[in-house]
Lab assay of single mutants.
Amino acid sequence: MTLTLTVPPGAKVRVRITNENGETTEIEVEPGETVTITLPAGSTVRVEVEVVDPDGRKRTETFTLKP
Results as ranks from 00 to 15, higher is better:
Leu65Glu: 10
Thr24Met: 07
Lys66Ile: 15
Ile37Val: 08
Ala41Ile: 12
Gly42Trp: 13
Arg16Met: 04
Val15Phe: 03
Gly56Tyr: 00
Ala41Met: 11
Glu23Ser: 06
Thr44Asn: 03
Pro67Tyr: 15
Leu39Asp: 04
Gly10Tyr: 02
Arg57Ile: 04
Thr62Glu: 13
Leu5Ile: 07
Lys66Cys: 15
Thr18Phe: 13
Pro31Val: 13
Ile17Lys: 07
Thr24Asp: 10
Thr2Cys: 15
Thr38Arg: 04
Thr38Ala: 10
Leu39Cys: 13
Thr64Lys: 01
Gly10Ala: 12
Ala11Arg: 01
Glu50Ser: 04
Thr62His: 12
Glu30Tyr: 05
Leu5Ala: 06
Glu28Asp: 10
Gly32Thr: 13
Thr2Ala: 06
Gly56Leu: 00
Leu65Ser: 00
Arg14Ile: 04
Ile17Ser: 11
Met1Gln: 03
Ala41Phe: 11
Ser43His: 10
Lys58Cys: 05
Arg16Thr: 04
Arg16Ile: 04
Val29Leu: 12
Glu61Pro: 03
Val29Trp: 14
Arg46Phe: 08
Ala41Gln: 08
Glu23Ile: 11
Leu5Glu: 02
Arg59Ser: 03
Val7Asn: 03
Glu50Trp: 01
Val45Ala: 06
Leu65Met: 12
Asn19Val: 14
Ile27Thr: 05
Met1Trp: 13
Gly10Asp: 05
Val45Met: 04
Glu28Met: 04
Pro54Lys: 13
Ala41Trp: 13
Ala11Thr: 03
Pro31Trp: 05
Gly10Phe: 03
Asn19Gly: 10
Val51Trp: 15
Lys58Val: 12
Leu39Phe: 12
Val7Gln: 02
Gly10Leu: 09
Leu65Thr: 01
Arg46Trp: 04
Ala11Met: 01
Arg59Phe: 11
Glu30Phe: 07
Gly56Met: 00
Gly32Phe: 13
Lys58Thr: 09
Glu28Leu: 03
Thr34Asn: 09
Leu39Gly: 14
Thr64Ser: 01
Glu61Gln: 08
Thr25Tyr: 10
Glu48His: 02
Glu23Ala: 05
Pro9Tyr: 05
Ile27His: 11
Ile37Cys: 10
Glu26Trp: 06
Arg57Asn: 07
Glu48Trp: 02
Thr60Cys: 14
Val7Ala: 00
Thr24Tyr: 08
Asp55Trp: 06
Val35Tyr: 14
Arg57Met: 02
Thr18Gln: 11
Asn21Met: 07
Asn21Lys: 05
Gly42Val: 14
Glu48Asn: 02
Thr24Lys: 09
Leu5Tyr: 03
Ala11Gly: 10
Glu61Phe: 15
Thr62Lys: 02
Ile37Phe: 12
Val35Cys: 08
Arg46Gly: 02
Val29Lys: 06
Val45Lys: 02
Leu3Asn: 03
Thr2His: 08
Val15Glu: 00
Glu61Val: 15
Phe63Gln: 15
Val15Met: 11
Arg57Asp: 00
Arg59Ala: 01
Lys66Arg: 03
Val13Arg: 01
Thr25Met: 05
Thr18Ala: 07
Thr25Ser: 05
Asp55His: 02
Gly32Glu: 08
Thr36Glu: 13
Asp55Leu: 02
Arg46Asn: 04
Gly42His: 11
Thr6Pro: 13
Leu5Phe: 08
Val47Ala: 01
Gly42Leu: 09
Thr36Gly: 09
Glu61Trp: 15
Ile37Glu: 14
Pro40Lys: 07
Lys58Glu: 00
Gly22Asn: 09
Met1Leu: 10
Arg16Asn: 08
Thr4Leu: 13
Arg46Cys: 09
Asp53Gly: 13
Gly10Ser: 08
Leu39Lys: 03
Glu28Ser: 08
Phe63Gly: 15
Ile17Ala: 14
Gly42Arg: 12
Thr62Gly: 05
Phe63Ser: 15
Val49Pro: 00
Arg46His: 06
Gly42Cys: 15
Val51Cys: 06
Asn19Cys: 13
Asp53Val: 00
Thr2Phe: 12
Val29Ile: 07
Glu20Phe: 05
Thr60Gln: 01
Thr18Ile: 15
Ile17Trp: 12
Thr38Val: 07
Pro31Leu: 14
Lys66Ala: 14
Pro31Asn: 11
Pro40Ala: 08
Val45Trp: 10
Lys12Thr: 13
Val35Ala: 05
Thr34Arg: 13
Gly22Val: 11
Glu20Arg: 07
Lys66Ser: 14
Thr2Asn: 07
Phe63Pro: 15
Asn21Ile: 07
Val49Thr: 01
Met1Cys: 15
Thr64Glu: 15
Pro54Ile: 04
Gly10Val: 04
Thr34Pro: 12
Val51Ser: 02
Thr34Gly: 09
Glu23Lys: 07
Leu5Cys: 12
Met1Gly: 11
Phe63Glu: 15
Lys58Gly: 00
Ala11His: 03
Val51Glu: 00
Thr34Gln: 07
Thr4Asn: 05
Ser43Met: 12
Ile37Ala: 14
Val49Cys: 03
Thr25Val: 13
Val45His: 06
Val49Tyr: 01
Glu33Met: 10
Asp53Asn: 01
Arg16Phe: 04
Pro8Thr: 12
Pro40Gly: 10
Val35Phe: 09
Thr38His: 05
Pro9Lys: 08
Val52Trp: 06
Arg57Lys: 10
Val7Ser: 01
Asn21His: 06
Lys58Tyr: 01
Pro8Leu: 12
Lys12Tyr: 05
Thr34Glu: 07
Pro9Gln: 07
Gly22Leu: 07
Leu3Lys: 06
Asp53Thr: 09
Glu30Lys: 12
Val45Ile: 07
Val45Leu: 10
Glu48Val: 04
Thr24Gly: 11
Thr64Arg: 00
Thr18Pro: 08
Thr62Arg: 02
Asn19Arg: 07
Glu20Cys: 14
Thr62Tyr: 14
Lys66Asp: 15
Arg57Trp: 01
Val35Asp: 02
Thr6Lys: 09
Thr24His: 08
Met1Glu: 05
Ser43Arg: 14
Leu65His: 01
Asp55Met: 03
Thr64Ile: 14
Thr38Trp: 14
Val13Tyr: 00
Pro67Trp: 15
Val13Trp: 01
Arg16Asp: 04
Ala41Cys: 15
Arg57Pro: 00
Lys58Met: 03
Lys12Phe: 06
Val49Ser: 01
Thr62Leu: 02
Glu33Thr: 10
Val7Arg: 01
Val15Trp: 05
Leu5Arg: 04
Arg46Val: 14
Thr24Pro: 08
Val49Gln: 00
Glu50His: 02
Thr36Pro: 06
Thr25Glu: 08
Lys66Gln: 14
Thr25Trp: 10
Glu20Leu: 07
Val7Thr: 03
Val51Arg: 02
Val45Asp: 02
Gly10Asn: 06
Glu26Ala: 06
Ala11Gln: 01
Lys58Phe: 01
Val47Ser: 00
Asp55Pro: 00
Thr60Phe: 09
Arg59Pro: 00
Ile17Phe: 13
Thr62Met: 03
Glu50Pro: 01
Val47His: 00
Glu50Tyr: 01
Val13Ile: 03
Val52Cys: 04
Pro67Thr: 14
Thr24Gln: 11
Thr6Ser: 09
Thr64Pro: 15
Val45Cys: 05
Glu30Arg: 11
Asn19Met: 12
Ala41Pro: 06
Arg59Leu: 02
Arg46Glu: 05
Glu23Val: 08
Thr34Ile: 12
Thr62Ile: 14
Met1Ala: 05
Thr4Gln: 08
Val13Asn: 01
Arg16Lys: 06
Glu61Gly: 02
Glu30Gly: 03
Asp55Glu: 02
Ala11Pro: 01
Arg16Leu: 05
Val52Leu: 02
